[in-house]
C-alpha cells in the first residue's frame, strides 16, 4: 500500500472510529439528559374503594 493510501486509511480509522464513538457517546449523554428533564411520571396509587 502506498503512503497516500496508508495515510488515508489510518485517518479514516482514527477519525472515523473515534468520531463514531464520540458522536454516540454525546447522543447517550443527551438521551440521559432527556430522561432527566422528562422523567416517567410515577403511577399514583388508585384510591381505595370505600
Amino acid at each position: 500500500m502506498d503512503n497516500a493510501k496508508w495515510t488515508f486509511g489510518l485517518t479514516m480509522m482514527i477519525v472515523g472510529m473515534g468520531g463514531t464513538f464520540l458522536t454516540l457517546w454525546i447522543l447517550g449523554l443527551v438521551m440521559d439528559a432527556l430522561k432527566n428533564v422528562f422523567p416517567l411520571a410515577a403511577k399514583t396509587p388508585s384510591p381505595e374503594k370505600k
Binding site: M17, F21, G28, L29, M31
Partner: peptide
C-alpha cells in the same frame, strides 16, 4: 443509553 457505545 450507554448501550449506544456497543453500537459504536
Amino acid at each position: 443509553p450507554k448501550m449506544l457505545l456497543f453500537g459504536a
